[in-house]
Design a protein around this nucleic acid. Structure first.
Lengths: 207, 207, 207, 207
DNA sequence: AATGAATGAGTTTTCATTCAT
DNA sequence: TATGAATGAAAACTCATTCAT
């Protein structure tokens, strides 16, 4: 009756099913952004998607799976946006700037997505599976950033600092952006991005 | 039924009552740290405190009040620890170092407290009253930090950056510490604190 | 979760939903009549309706809404019954008789309904919204009766009395009927109705 | 430990105990009048009496007993006031007038008492014992009134009506007074009493 | 006699999930 | 595939009553 409890995640799915899942994920994002994770019940999400609550369970065996898919979707979208900004950079410094500025602009353009994933990440402590997944996701992103710093140091472009601490700090500073933009709606996004990039450029560059 | 609906918060409370409240707050902290805010029901908290769930409501009229008291307690404790570290600094740079290092060490010594307040702050988005309170708390802390940066600039000690962006970033980087220390238990705390302070010292100082 | 938070009350409702709501209202009436408002918990009502307690909340967002619907249902049913008796009366005296006799007969035929609404009206003192509604309902009924008396006086059919006091008294005397019929099951209803009508006919008529 | 579960009600009680009971009863009356029966918890009553909640249970084994005592107290007080007004009347008509006018004036002078007993009577459906007692109380009052009407008829002073119906109606009309006086605070009490007495004088008197 | 902290049973309400259609 | 009525387990909160002091 249901499309089976797929363990391998990316099993074959019909076009129409994929479309429904996408629609539900999108509705989940706007719902969470609008009324908060705690109040984002299936009824609320279904209402916004224009479908019945039962259909959500039909497509996502557990609530956790839907939330995981939301995070996956947003992360993919962000990755894509950031890769475009970062790749082809001439220097590690430029790559870092590109990453930071790209992130900030992405935040400004997709506020609902960012609010959604931050709320899920915070609340997901109870949803074991989602929690694990989110942590892994985060760990990977952090590791990549750490690697970039290490490479920049080996290339002699960055000073000698602890790459891990720097990675954690940059990540945290970037992730603080959505809340700040939300708290101060009039903020000049480009200036904000620039200032944030300046901060970490000064922090990493060889004297 | 309850020991009076206290509006002015700091009404006279018997010694025994104060002790119970403290015990409940402590139990709430370890419960949230252990199983997460979402699962931290009164039953769970009461189990850990060795009391009946009803007693929590007896001492805290609403769930929100308990959570607010948790935040208040932790913030007070942290403020005390940080003030000791910061006051009497000879320079703004030293004050910033003191703040950052103090925060990191506090995190290392009180991991549960930090996890608890971050979870409450994140989850409280739905609980109107607590949300407001947490946001005000945060806004105040941010504003103070911003002021410090502005003063440092006026004193010619800091370079010309946007104080708000810097405050947000420092705060975010500091608040990322508990999760990092939890994720990597073996971390050398002093080194971590030092590195984090270095990052922002380089970011703020006049070239 | 619920079939929408209807504000306009008379939104479109599926046949099956309407049926369930009716069933629940009916169960609420017999429950209140049987064990009293104070003990008429959802568990009790659901048991009598042969459904689960959660289903009541599913159809009525708040307890108050269910109670309001009970009153609305009974009032409508009673209005219908009384209108048939009253309209087309040749004189004000006849209209008053029709009203009183109609009311008494309605009480005899629907004892549970009358008990239920009187209990709700009395208990609703605490339930703010229901209270307001019930009071308005009552005030309207009283005002209509008062108007009738005034018109009868202007028409020269009634003597010169305070219409308000008379309205309050007639209403009270009528509303005392269900309890009396319940306390004395063997009562001759027609005779009772007749006697009650006599009382107020003598009280209002021009000497 | 407790003053024993007295079944015979009027067992020997120390002066101090009697005083406490009176104080608690008085507090219960004002509490119910102020916040309604449903919200009149022991904590609320105790607060108003300036004692601890436990002491109420100490003096009244069950909640029901307290409520029963409230009714008893008010009824006694009212009886006393009415007897003074009624006794020594020259005619049955005069006695009826005295009763009605006395009741109305008592309502105006003791609004809290009347509100309290009406709320308890309505809510007491759940409290088996109190319910029974209140019903007996009411039945007695009704029977006395009925007797008076019968005697008046035998004396040739009243017309030939059903004494029971008349008794129920007079009682109901009188009991509607407190709500009316509350709903319309400016009401001229003496005029109200007069009008009400007029109504029933016309209803009972021999043409 | 009196306190008031503590309990535990009961309430309404919420909601993911199930299932007959 | 899709619906949406229905369930059942869990939550926070209320409060008469108990009991150690």
């Amino acid at each position: 009756m249901q499309p089976e409890n797929r363990s391998g995640d990316q099993e074959k799915r019909s076009f129409i099913e994929e479309a429904r899942r996408g629609q539900i994920v999108a509705a989940a994002i706007v719902t969470i952004a609008e009324i908060g994770y705690a109040k984002a019940s299936f009824v609320q999400i279904a209402r916004r998607a224009g479908i019945s609550p039962g259909l959500i369970t039909y497509h996502f065996a557990r609530r956790e799976e839907l939330m995981k898919q939301v995070m996956l979707t947003v992360h993919n979208s962000m990755d894509q946006a950031l890769t475009a900004r970062t790749e082809g950079s001439e220097s590690y410094c430029a790559a870092l700037r590109g990453l930071i500025e790209g992130f900030v602009h992405y935040c400004a353009e997709h506020p609902a997505e960012l609010i959604a994933i931050s709320q899920i990440a915070a609340a997901a402590r109870d949803a074991e599976a989602a929690r694990t997944w989110a942590e892994e996701q985060n760990a990977t992103a952090l590791a990549e950033l750490e690697d970039m710093f290490r490479e920049g140091q080996e290339a002699g472009e960055f000073r000698d600092f602890a790459p891990r601490v720097m990675a954690v700090s940059v990540m945290a500073a970037m992730e603080a952006t959505p809340a700040e933009l939300m708290a101060r709606p009039g903020t000049d996004v480009t200036a904000y991005a620039n200032e944030l990039a300046d901060i970490f450029e000064l922090a990493v560059r060889r004297a």
